[in-house]
Design a protein around this nucleic acid. Sequence first.
DNA 1: TATGAATGAGAATTCATTCAT
DNA 2: GATGAATGAATTCTCATTCAT
Lengths: 213, 213, 213, 213
Amino acid sequence: MKRTRKRLTPEERTEQIIETAAKLFAEKGFDATSIDDIAEACGVAPGLIYHYFDSKSEILRALLERKSLLPKMAEILAQPPKATVEETLTELGNAIWKMLEEKRELALMMHGEMQRNQEVVKIVGEIIRTGVKLLSDYLNAQKEAGILRDDLDPTIFARTFWGALFESFFAHNRLAPFVKRIPPKRLVSEVVKLLLYGAVNQKKLAPGGENAK
Amino acid sequence: MKRTRKRLTPEERTEQIIETAAKLFAEKGFDATSIDDIAEACGVAPGLIYHYFDSKSEILRALLERKSLLPKMAEILAQPPKATVEETLTELGNAIWKMLEEKRELALMMHGEMQRNQEVVKIVGEIIRTGVKLLSDYLNAQKEAGILRDDLDPTIFARTFWGALFESFFAHNRLAPFVKRIPPKRLVSEVVKLLLYGAVNQKKLAPGGENAK
Amino acid sequence: MKRTRKRLTPEERTEQIIETAAKLFAEKGFDATSIDDIAEACGVAPGLIYHYFDSKSEILRALLERKSLLPKMAEILAQPPKATVEETLTELGNAIWKMLEEKRELALMMHGEMQRNQEVVKIVGEIIRTGVKLLSDYLNAQKEAGILRDDLDPTIFARTFWGALFESFFAHNRLAPFVKRIPPKRLVSEVVKLLLYGAVNQKKLAPGGENAK
Amino acid sequence: MKRTRKRLTPEERTEQIIETAAKLFAEKGFDATSIDDIAEACGVAPGLIYHYFDSKSEILRALLERKSLLPKMAEILAQPPKATVEETLTELGNAIWKMLEEKRELALMMHGEMQRNQEVVKIVGEIIRTGVKLLSDYLNAQKEAGILRDDLDPTIFARTFWGALFESFFAHNRLAPFVKRIPPKRLVSEVVKLLLYGAVNQKKLAPGGENAK
DNA sequence: TATGAATGAGAATTCATTCAT
DNA sequence: GATGAATGAATTCTCATTCAT
């Protein structure tokens, strides 16, 4: 009854193991995923894993090296700006969310692995610097055009934007039973609105004008 | 070889276990810290730990509850109405930042540990839910008082607030060489201003009125 | 808030511990009952148990020595016979069942302890010999009176009677979720009827008469 | 010091573990036998046991299922109708006795172990339920065929049958010096006769007819 | 007498890893 | 390449028992 054994090339097998491990790590966490789990999900004996990787940690390392948010992130940030700030940021937010969804496993593991893996920190640090730089440049241009507040700190804006998106992504994927799920599109547009126009009731403030601190 | 039994009061021992565990969890992570490690660090037999806590998870729960700023948060949010939203949130943001600084390693580790351990997710998730609830209640009250926008989503606000602070904290502590360091006080007050009044130039918008979306 | 400590005399305390242990052993089994369980049920600290007993096994030993089915059983068997065999056996069966109920803990533990405790074997062996002797005498008298079959083996009858009652008692108390519960009165009368008149349909056999084998 | 790994087929190893466990459980009891004991007796690392069984209880379950005479019982009870009830029950009784003799120590220990361990109760209870069901079904069929009394309670019959056999077995093996030993064949046939035709002198009753209660 | 903190030897179980086949 | 039996150390947790107070 044993099904025909799929004889994969070494490359295919390596790929399969990494992809499978990525999914399991993201679902259950690194520690809670056993080599047996990975082997079973691959339809393969546990011993075989050790033909391709020296240890469980090696799988993680390979996974982090191979998959990266970097190129995608750079691509997103390089898009030409849209007509309004709101449109531009909404499109950026949606693109980031989409990327997070697509690389879910890696994205979720990223923060966690930064606690133990200096390599990961370097990689992520690089992209963050680039990302913040690109977004800052755009925001500064808008400031000069008078669209955004003179006293706006672009770095804080960028971090808050990223923080809002990432924490929501994290909440959706990790804290599922504990938090409210919000449709991504709405989430992004709400965050953008919040960051652009603020939470206070403008109608009430408008006449006074004491809002600029 | 049996050392003289040191008898501590339950309060002292409980305190000792929690503090010791906090240190070890921060250093090595939750999973990588064994009950035997904690017992040894306390200079105590492993069995004694179970005199005070039903399980390893209970230690974590107790620890997080003790370190958690939920009571502080409740206190701040329950302030008499004469304090403005800006003042209240600034105070809250500073309190959060202070807590993160005080328990720096633990805070960073816990965030990472959530990728690895469902138990941690459950415990932290519960605390997050409570925190979000507290903040949401406060925000809703402000909405009803007409201070905040009717259409503001308190959950999104809460997450963005937390995300902004935590990402900055994370950046300061883990991405040090790659990012700009901002003085915490200024950081908090800028974030609060951003979330309350938005990034757009209100002076310019005021006449037009297209700011209500 | 600590309630007034009940200062018991040593005898009362010993008695209390034995009674409490008996109940717990019967409910959860000997191994599954911890000294802490007993202490808690007594409203007393675990250490105190060791003032009265050298070990957990000692409690069991004391319990088995102190409580015994013997006197009660002898008393039951010494009752004068009733008018008919059926009445006599029914009354005997009911008395035995009542005794088992009253000394539930001990009765249930008896069989179990015989596997490890030679002392218990001796005690129980003695009573069984006595019981079988008394019942046999009665049955033999009934045989001579022509009421019971000439070829009836009184020992087998006695054992079957006891076995039927004890197994049912055991089933009621230990196998609760797995077996049908039968009201004791009905159970006893059914067993007596079965042992006296048999399971076969006499109406059908009567004409032939081949029932005596 | 590491001994050469002995590689057995899964069937051999499973068999070995079950037989070894059976011996140890019989000798020391279920609770008092540790997984390490079993592993050591098998000359194998403790972890290997879990390659074959999910838990210690599973070993017991497998062991009892394997030793259980349920299949044999079903076979006997399903005999073609030409066999009489007396023949069928005698065969069943002899089979039960044979099984008890073959697994003497295990059988005695299990009965005692039920006082100590809920797990054992659950596993054994399940088997008893199935056994009683099998016998009941057979008895009901005989009732419908008019062979057995309409008002016969099959559960009581089954329990009495089992009780008679087990108590005798128990007496033979544990109460040896105190009780009469009866040759098993005779014992079984006498019990069957007693349960089928009763203890009363039918010849005497036949004319009167007060036997139908 | 009485407390309950403290001990420490196991107990069951898990799992990364090895290696004979 | 591939299998899966086997290892063995580590881990959480239990509990009879001791002993300072």
